[in-house]
């Protein structure tokens, strides 16, 4: 479904990614782990079109997608969340999700200001869909609050709802559990499971919480200093010599 071929990224003289290959299959929950600064978020930014890779190509459903601007990539069905939460702070929770459906709706300028029936019907669908998504992430009661007034965990869930509103086939989650407490993490894990099953999504996630990664990911890749040092099942990763050395650390 998603294939990265020999991706390298240079910032000035710094080589942030070096010949990274990655294959994510349809329906997988794929984990991407590694120490800080290993290039995980850079990889996300390459997939979503924010950066143009210095070398290599990104293929999504067999199509080369690198070089497309981010909004085009989103329209192809790749949704994402951000490591440093990027919500529309001064918009309501509901409007955040409604903006998320931008890619899959059509209303134009004249249709909107004239209030054509087509546009009104579309608005109704957007509202309905957004409320269903909010229900799913448990934020329906707070739909009129400003996004900035939500708690940290709620904001992360809202980001997921917003990403789902564009009806993605591939969802990229950048540290979805960061800043969450144990209960919230548990809820998040069941939410990720649920959306993956319910919406037949493929999920690629970056996470530092090993417990979460090891229990929900079918396959894991490890980055270190911009190089992929391992990939495989959680079991293989746990026992991989290089991964233990550079990231997991030896059990005490």
């Amino acid at each position: 479904m998603l294939e990265l071929k020999h991706i390298s990224q240079e910032f000035g003289g710094l080589r942030a990614l070096d010949e990274v290959n990655l294959i994510v299959n349809e329906g997988q929950i794929y984990g991407l782990i590694g120490p800080n600064g290993a290039g995980k978020t850079t990889l996300f930014n390459i997939i979503t079109g924010i950066y143009q890779p210095t070398e290599g190509g990104v293929y999504f459903q067999g199509q080369k997608i690198d070089g497309n601007p981010p909004h085009q990539v989103a329209r192809m069905g790749i949704g994402r969340t951000f490591q440093n939460i990027r919500l529309f702070a001064k918009l309501s929770v509901l409007d955040n999700v409604r903006v998320g459906s931008h890619a899959v709706t059509q209303a134009g300028l004249f249709g909107s200001i004239l209030g054509l029936p087509v546009v009104r019907r579309e608005e109704k669908q957007i509202l309905h869909k957004s409320q269903t998504l909010l229900e799913m992430v448990g934020l329906q009661d707070k739909r009129w609050e400003y996004a900035e007034n939500l708690s940290y965990g709620e904001q992360r869930r809202l980001e997921i709802a917003r990403a789902l509103a564009l009806q993605p086939t591939l969802l990229l989650l950048d540290e979805p559990a960061a800043g969450m407490n144990a209960t919230e993490k548990q809820e998040l894990m069941s939410l990720i499971y649920y959306i993956q099953k319910e919406m037949k999504l493929t999920i690629l996630l970056v996470e530092h919480d090993m417990n979460l990664v090891m229990s929900i990911c079918e396959r894991i890749a490890v980055l270190d200093y911009g190089r992929k040092i391992a990939d495989g099942s959680p079991e293989q990763i746990k026992n991989d010599e290089r991964v233990i050395q550079s990231y997991l650390g030896a059990p005490a």
């Binding site: 979503t48 924010i50 329209r75």
Partner: peptide, 17 residues
């Protein structure tokens, strides 16, 4: 809504298409 979204966060707005 997309205009407000641009004011609030351009990168997130682009990620929404």
């Amino acid at each position: 809504r997309s205009m407000y979204a641009i004011r609030e966060n351009e990168i997130a707005a682009e990620a929404c298409g």
